[in-house]
Design a protein around this nucleic acid. Structure first.
Lengths: 122, 122
DNA sequence: ATAAACTATGAACCTTGGTTTATAGCAAAA
DNA sequence: TTTTGCTATAAACCAAGGTTCATAGTTTAT
């Protein structure tokens, strides 16, 4: 596959594919070059990029993903994954709290304004 | 309260308090000035800032929070909150998926490497 | 009363995660 | 065969969310 098709299938701009590659987020095995120096992507890269996006949108940083992908021993990966799973669980708790909070905003039960000192001049 | 104490209680740097204020993320009622032009914060601001941080870490942008806090009608707030709750639910689903994925990485069942073409040279 | 610590301001600076631009070679269709 | 489109690269640019700096007034401790 060439860049165009990967871009279409992943819905990532080609510029982003190149950006990820520059950042070493795409293992070499997924990308080779043809005789014109055009990139040739392995089909598996589509699934790979979808996972990558998911982790990025969940708040993993590029640096963390590089660790997870390339640079670390199994032990280091283990520590990072454990740390991240804990982080995700905290996030989940916050998500629950914020849903409640936001629903209360809608009901007028609570919001940023009514939380202040009450105004006795009304 | 002065800046120092708010900073201590919220664990936000004073520079961040001022940044939020500049961005209009802190309603005026929470902040006045003493005779030296020093900021005087209402005690309630601590709880307020904790909520604010939570929403920011959950992926709300400053612009969205400004809408929620200051500028919108009830109808607009309603739309924004509904939209955001949906977004949060998508995030929750992704969090679940990523936990599974990450646990699999640890077990060696799946990871970024083994997902590639198998290597027949071993 | 003077040094050390806190407050103020605006402007410049920084990092992250990309996107855009400028320039050029290759290709597919008309 | 030439125009339209895809590919390449390096470098500049961008927006978000802060942080640091330069400069100056205040206040607290010694």
């Amino acid at each position: 596959m060439k860049a165009n098709e990967v871009s279409r299938l992943t819905e990532l701009p080609i510029s982003t594919l190149r950006f990820y590659e520059r950042k070493q987020l795409i293992p070499e095995q997924f990308i080779s070059r043809d005789e014109n120096n055009y990139r040739v992507y392995d089909e598996e890269v589509v699934k790979y990029l979808q996972d990558l996006r998911m982790l990025l949108t969940l708040g993993f940083t590029i640096q963390e993903l590089i660790l997870l992908i390339n640079e670390s021993s199994h032990t280091e990966k283990e520590a990072l994954v454990k740390y991240k799973i804990e982080h995700i669980q905290e996030l989940e708790a916050k998500l629950e709290a914020s849903k409640t909070f936001l629903k209360d905003v809608l009901k007028g039960k609570a919001d940023f304004q009514t939380r202040c000192k009450s105004n006795h001049e009304t």
